[in-house]
């Protein structure tokens, strides 16, 4: 039953035209929800959550840092999945997604690195350490840059997307290997305090605003992907009838 629904969605959203109408129905309410969730999480975390007994107020940067890092990681995984679908099944929407997912993910990786190093200065006494997690995030940023660069130089959009897709697949394997290989080098970063399963070691008063800002960041990422994918679909299908009518009706 669930499988049937997934299959139907896969085929329906695989059609650029259906995706376009679907996204114009979703975006008007997803956008405000994403913004409200993110702002709620950030305001709660930055202004109302208790300060840490060891780190004082400087810990509050996690309310930006952790959502950005998790978004960057999930974005690259999504890039790999879209790459697989684009290379193996040559699905048009997966190619569009490859182009739509990369920029925001790269920005989040950069934010994660910047906030991390700002937090590192008062806490570890240094802006930068070649520690496992920081190094992996830096390499993740490099790989986002590679995918974006490859897409930009190949003119034919379908070919560009599939080339970037293959690179993203190889990249996902690389991310995993890099993560374990840099752990072999000494690690400074703290382990995860937030666990999906089992007891989290973070105070609940800090956990809930963190979870909310993470959710808000992911929703915002989704909104960004939808908007980018819409304009990419419009560009790719610019010669088709439905886009022509769309233009004539003034985008309504």
């Amino acid at each position: 039953m669930v499988w049937q629904t997934i299959k139907r969605w896969y085929h329906m959203l695989g059609s650029p035209r259906y995706f376009h109408t679907f996204s114009s129905r979703v975006l008007p309410w997803l956008t405000p929800i994403a913004l409200i969730t993110l702002v709620t999480g950030l305001v709660w975390g930055l202004a109302f959550a208790p300060s840490d007994y060891q780190q004082g107020n400087s810990y509050r940067i996690i309310f930006i840092h952790v959502p950005a890092s998790s978004g960057a990681l999930m974005g690259y995984m999504a890039l790999g999945v879209s790459g697989l679908v684009a290379v193996v099944w040559r699905m048009k929407m997966a190619e569009v997604m490859l182009k739509a997912i990369a920029p925001f993910g790269a920005a989040l990786a950069a934010i994660s690195l910047i906030t991390g190093s700002l937090w590192g200065k008062p806490t570890w006494g240094t802006y930068w350490q070649w520690d496992a997690r920081m190094t992996s995030m830096l390499i993740l940023l490099f790989m986002y840059v590679g995918v974006i660069a490859l897409q930009n130089v190949i003119r034919e959009p379908r070919q560009a997307a599939r080339a970037a897709g293959l690179l993203a697949i190889v990249g996902v394997i690389n991310v995993v290997i890099v993560k374990y290989s840099v752990e072999w080098v000494q690690t400074l970063h703290q382990g995860s305090t937030l666990k999906l399963f089992g007891e989290s070691t973070i105070n609940p008063a800090m956990k809930y605003p963190l979870l909310i800002s993470m959710l808000g960041m992911w929703l915002l990422y989704a909104v960004n992907v939808l908007i980018r994918a819409r304009s990419e679909v419009e560009w790719r299908e610019r010669r088709s009838k439905w886009v022509q009518t769309l233009i004539r009706e003034g985008g309504k």
């Binding site: 490099f142 590679g146 130089v153 990249g171 690389n174 890099v178 290989s181 840099v182 072999w184 080098v185």
Partner: peptide, 17 residues
């Protein structure tokens, strides 16, 4: 340069070990 941008991140595990 493009080749370097694509390939260097993928070389990192081999380099480390």
């Amino acid at each position: 340069i493009l080749l370097a941008v694509l390939v260097l991140p993928l070389y990192i595990p081999v380099l480390i070990f």
